[in-house]
Design a protein around this nucleic acid. Structure first.
Lengths: 331, 331
DNA sequence: GTGAAAGCGCTAACAT
DNA sequence: ATGTTAGCGCTTTCAC
């Protein structure tokens, strides 16, 4: 397919390429008549500015990279949607890359974004695997924003949730409902999200004279299958808990299935709470008590932060979005 | 941020830029020692090829566009994931654009992809709104692949499911379970997916001497809220059906919630089936009987088709993936 | 095996 | 208000 160029427009209009360029960019110094003529011709022959060539000359473009763990996970899907919304509002485009939580892929993704000369990157980093390439971004003063997860060792733009409060609120809520034996189900230490949620939860226990116990913590990397199998195992041995605080809704819903299969009643035999408030949390029976996290908002704010950094050299910021307790009938 | 160029590598290595370019592209005509030296220097100074500049000269790049309706919808999220997987395998990158089912946005998206000089586009078209820009793509012989939806008037690459069989299989299954009054719940005519599913369903009815009746069809654009509200309304008036065949699982799960709130039992009072087999279909109670559609596979095949078109000028193909009945307890 | 020169499409700087 | 020239970083052509 052959795209028309400004040269062709120029020769049709009988002006120089430069004039065409200025006319199409709405730069001053072109007579209204010429400008109109040029735009008309451009429209007629289906001209589309070659942003790659334009970038080469100006070193400016409106492309950013989004490096996420898995866009088919409903949580990340919502965040990505928000990023897209935020970018669209400022005329930016997005190159995406799924890392599958693989650290090597994350590095590859960053290099790829470099080779496309994107102006900035939003990255939901693979937790707990070192931060070498994040440090590299920082050294090069390359604009980037961390989403959801952060690294305590890296001071950078960050958009996430108050995960301490997530754990604390749910802990208090469960304790308030009379539970003293609560299983913390899913996630693993070293991941900032897990650590903060667990810290908040532990604080809630302690403020009521309770103490988190090792046998009431089940650490694993959450996906639906893993969570289901783990809960099956836990239910097969004598139960040491009356309530479950799941790392997220995906884990909670998988647990829900396992619990129902054992013919246990929720919330009577076992109370259950999750985190995220994904769409399905409202559709299952009983409805899942959970913390709502503003996922799309997080993506959108991340995009805005990044673009501010790119265009206005805004200083690093850390933006904490407030979670919200959603009480349904599972507790 | 300043990126090193081949010129800089050249001056360090004491060779010409041309030699550097050839060495890094693994072209012949460079001595092994020179090549090794050049690659070492490139590595040391963190060189990343500027693919934008490269494109300008070669008119080749490895970028495609993915124009989808909404990446936060679990169905499209899976398809997008498949596209990403397929692209990664062939070294292609993806620019994404969500149209929200808005026809004007779809057109904007295509122009944007043009301005980025992407080599091809995968598009899940907004159904039922004319096909002007698809025709434009065709006239310009621009490589593109339709995903899921198609237009009867456009002969083009297409990857989708056998939607007639989807409707037919579920229709037969419900009839086989003794249902003669079946509500077809969600979607709207003019959308190829809907039309094919409904045709398959109607054929199943007819082959058993039954006839689809207007009051047993509920047309609406599916999202969770709309489906929930619609089912609430339907249940408030005297029921004219004993089973529900939902357009997709999102509609089915929303219906499930409404039905439970009326204290009706599934499948005894009302049987329910969906289409898609999203993750949640297995987690709700009772498990949802549905047709499994290979969503990620569809995305991956679409990517392969497109790249074949781009690289090998492969002729247009239409690929139909087989759906699969998943029997759970909701029927 | 290597280098010099030209040009992809665009825009910035300078001229008229 | 408009045109000329040069150059972004790369690859291709042609010369040595």
């Amino acid at each position: 397919m052959n795209y028309p160029t400004i040269k062709e427009i120029a020769s049709i209009a009988g002006v120089s390429a430069n004039t065409v360029s200025r006319a199409l960019r709405d730069e001053s110094g072109v007579s209204p008549e010429t400008r109109q003529l040029i735009k008309k011709i451009a429209n007629q022959i289906g001209y589309e500015r070659n942003v790659l060539a334009s970038h080469l000359r100006t070193r400016q473009n409106r492309t950013i990279g989004a490096i996420i763990i898995d866009n088919s996970n409903p949580f990340y899907a919502e965040v990505l949607k928000g990023i897209e919304t935020g970018c669209k509002a400022r005329g930016y485009q997005i190159l995406i890359y799924n890392t599958q939580g693989d650290y090597a892929m994350e590095e590859q993704a960053i290099r790829l974004m470099f080779s496309y000369r994107v102006r900035g990157i939003i990255i939901d980093p693979v937790p707990n695997r070192g931060e070498d390439h994040l440090r590299l971004l920082q050294e090069r003063k390359f604009p980037f924003v961390l989403a959801s997860h952060y690294s305590p060792e890296i001071r950078a733009n960050w958009v996430g949730y108050d995960d301490y409060q997530v754990g604390n609120t749910l802990g208090e809520f469960l304790i308030g409902k009379g539970h003293e034996e609560i299983l913390f189900f899913g996630g693993y230490p070293g991941d900032s999200t897990y650590d903060d949620r667990f810290a908040g939860f532990s604080a809630a226990l302690r403020s009521h004279g309770l103490e988190p116990r090792p046998e009431q913590v089940a650490n694993f990397q959450v996906d639906s299958d893993a969570a289901y199998r783990r809960m099956k195992l836990l239910l097969a041995s004598p139960r040491k808990f009356t309530a479950i605080l799941a790392y997220n809704d995906v884990a909670a819903l998988a647990a829900l299935k396992a619990i129902k299969e054992e013919s246990l009643r929720i919330p009577d035999d076992l109370a259950l709470a999750g985190v995220d408030n994904i769409t399905m949390a409202d559709l299952v029976e009983p409805g899942l008590t959970t913390m709502h996290l503003p996922k799309q908002e997080a993506g959108q704010v991340a995009a805005e932060l990044l673009i501010d950094c790119i265009e206005n050299h805004a200083p690093d910021r850390r933006i904490v979005l407030k979670p919200n307790l959603i009480v349904r009938s599972s507790v």
